[in-house]
Amino acid sequence: MTQPPTDDGPERPSPEPHVPEESDHADHADHDGRDGEDDVPEDVRKYERFKKIDGAQYDRANQFLRDRTYITAREWAIARLCSDFRTETGVEMTKIGENLPELVPFMEDTYTPQAVNQARSAFEAKVRKAGATFLYGAMCDFFTAEELDDIMYETTEVAKFLLEVEGVDLSVEQELEAEERISSVMREVRKASSELREEDAETNASDD
């Protein structure tokens, strides 16, 4: 039963097993020291990325990333936020952490600056390892030129999908230009690697 309102403030529900979801959110905001939308920075309120995915889709997004990349949905989201909320003095990690649920619909909890930095560092480390792994595979002649093209196409499609989920609108011309630039770089890498291996083989032969 709900108690009648008093002069001291709005009515409060009496202790009962069921509490409406709105009360849960309000209590959480009070505990965080957040009284309402007025406390949310303007650039956070205007942030439009990740609007295509909500909390109910978090598990699907996480599984998609785990199947196709080394990163998790948490690392993906925070990496993008660190890119978007970077100033001349560095990344606004406190702002990102305190406003995480407002910035990314599928993130339900706030983060400390340390937790934001941890996810950011994890993303960077995984990208570096993945890059080194891929480049070695391209340089060691394990893949044919056609196989490398297939890999580049697949990875480009995954990257494009993630950008589209973030709200980035790529034109066909931009997609084709990006794919051609990447393919051109990989052809140069493969060519330089082949020349390097040939030089090494000639050097070893002359030493013998």
Rank of each mutant, 00 (worst) to 15 (best):
E37C: 02
F50R: 00
E88A: 02
E37G: 03
V40I: 15
I53C: 15
E11I: 05
D54G: 15
D35K: 02
Y58T: 04
D59C: 06
D24L: 14
A29V: 01
G33T: 01
I78N: 14
G9T: 07
W76A: 09
G9I: 11
D24A: 09
E42H: 12
I71Y: 10
K52N: 13
R49C: 15
H28R: 12
Y58H: 14
V44S: 02
E75T: 00
F64K: 02
D39I: 00
A61R: 01
R80K: 13
A79E: 10
Y70K: 12
C82I: 00
L65C: 09
F64S: 04
D7K: 13
T89F: 04
R60P: 00
L81Y: 05
R74G: 03
R49P: 11
A26R: 07
T87D: 06
H18N: 12
R34Y: 03
E11R: 11
R74S: 08
V19L: 15
G55S: 10
P15I: 14
N62V: 00
D54H: 14
T87K: 04
Q63H: 13
G33H: 08
A56S: 12
D39F: 03
H28C: 10
G55K: 00
P20I: 07
R60N: 11
F85G: 06
P15T: 06
Y58I: 02
R45M: 06
D38R: 00
R66L: 15
A56C: 09
R34A: 05
P10Q: 12
S23Y: 08
A61V: 00
A73H: 09
G33F: 02
S14L: 15
I53H: 03
R74I: 05
R12H: 14
C82F: 09
C82H: 04
Y47P: 07
K46F: 06
D84I: 07
D8K: 03
R60Y: 13
E42D: 11
V44Y: 08
D35Y: 02
G33D: 10
I71D: 11
E42M: 10
D38M: 00
R60G: 14
R74H: 13
D30C: 05
R49A: 11
P13D: 08
W76L: 13
D24Q: 11
V44L: 05
R34Q: 09
R34I: 15
A56L: 14
T89M: 02
F85V: 07
Y47G: 01
D30Q: 12
A26P: 00
D24W: 13
E48F: 04
P17R: 08
P17E: 14
I71K: 05
R34N: 13
G33C: 06
T87S: 14
K51L: 10
D32G: 09
G9E: 07
F64I: 01
R68G: 00
R80I: 13
S23R: 01
A73L: 05
R74T: 12
H18L: 14
G9L: 10
K52D: 09
E48L: 04
A77L: 12
D24E: 13
E75N: 07
